[in-house]
Write a protein that binds this DNA or RNA. Structure first.
Lengths: 192, 192
DNA sequence: ACCTGAACACCGTTCAAGT
DNA sequence: ACCTGAACACCGTTCAAGT
């Protein structure tokens, strides 16, 4: 039976969920699909490109929220974080794929953030950087959050009851998002 | 002659500068030092730890600027970016080591940013996140900047003269730093 | 204490050759 | 068009044994 891109991405995603990004290798993926390693290179130019496709699969649930620019920025951030946390090492995967310019969906998300920045009144010359700043925050925060989560999901029962200092990642995340939104507000209508 | 940690880190840094992070392997480093691969594991527990030591070497020039909190934040950001741009793939290396919790110097830098945030009036519960947000920005921005720089340092003479859209990375970097500073200002004196 | 030698268990990628 | 088989050129890490 023929191998399709979609099957490959599907298998890669379940490998990711079950064993994490360190064990998501081309050879192991090929083994799982019962094909030779070389077969994957008919469908994908290299591993980076394949990981980019997996990243886009992870990002499928991220939509285009409506509302004023603040609502949209906050909505995109929240949806992004949720999507990343839904897969083992999702934040790390998407972060790497974004940096490598291999995620089409991240490019779309960036575009929506650019629109929101423009609507906020940021000069077009600065809108892209404003959008990137938001993305850097969401990825950085979530990579960190996820590695901590996964770290004490192992070694679980040894830890103290309600974790240290009433840790509420959601609230912490929102604090940063609001910081950025206020920063955007302050930098709007900047003379180019 | 005895192999010391400092020699290893020195050799690793020059391998980094000459060939980039992808070619900085334990085996290649051992070959350069004319020891067996196993010898490195007497001095470092694993590759992550060694890379952390290299990251700290890269970060040596980053100091503790004086002044009011805004000046300190801006100064730390600028020094951090300069240090990262001074070595091939420096931003990527430090970003990875920071995420893995392997850079002592980044921990120090974070501490100074926490102090600045507290001085700005951010509640202590939010100061760490505020500091991390700044770090996420500097690392994200500089990884991106450096990959672009290195990409068109190859394929050089083919490109247009003054690059696209009067690209001034320094000015763009400062815009983001100011956005963050204004965000911090807006979120100071937050009720805990 | 510090290092070698050799092994273990892998990698990503390419490419002639097959169907 | 799509895939196999086999190779190429590597990895990180461990560990008995040597000095």
């Amino acid at each position: 039976m023929q191998l399709h891109k979609r099957d490959v991405v599907e298998a890669a995603t379940s490998l990711l969920d079950d064993y994490g990004i360190a064990d998501l290798s081309m050879r192991r993926l090929a083994r799982e699909l019962e094909v030779s390693p070389g077969a994957l290179y008919w469908h994908f130019a290299n591993k980076q490109q394949l990981l980019g496709a997996v990243a886009d699969r992870v990002l499928q649930p991220v939509g285009a929220p409506a509302g004023d620019w603040r609502t949209r920025v906050a909505g995109i951030c929240a949806q992004l974080r949720d999507a990343l946390l839904s897969h083992t090492d999702g934040a790390e995967l998407v972060s790497a794929s974004f940096a490598a310019g291999q995620s089409a969906v991240m490019a779309d998300v960036l575009g929506r953030l650019v629109d929101a920045a423009v609507d906020a009144g940021v000069a077009t010359a600065n809108a892209e950087l404003t959008a990137r700043t938001v993305v850097y925050y969401v990825l950085g925060f979530t990579v960190d959050e996820q590695s901590r989560r996964q770290w004490d999901a192992a070694g679980a029962e040894l830890s103290e009851g309600p974790s240290l200092l009433t840790d509420d990642p959601g609230a912490r995340f929102d604090f940063g998002v609001q910081l950025l939104i206020e920063g955007i507000l302050a930098r709007r209508a900047q003379r180019v």
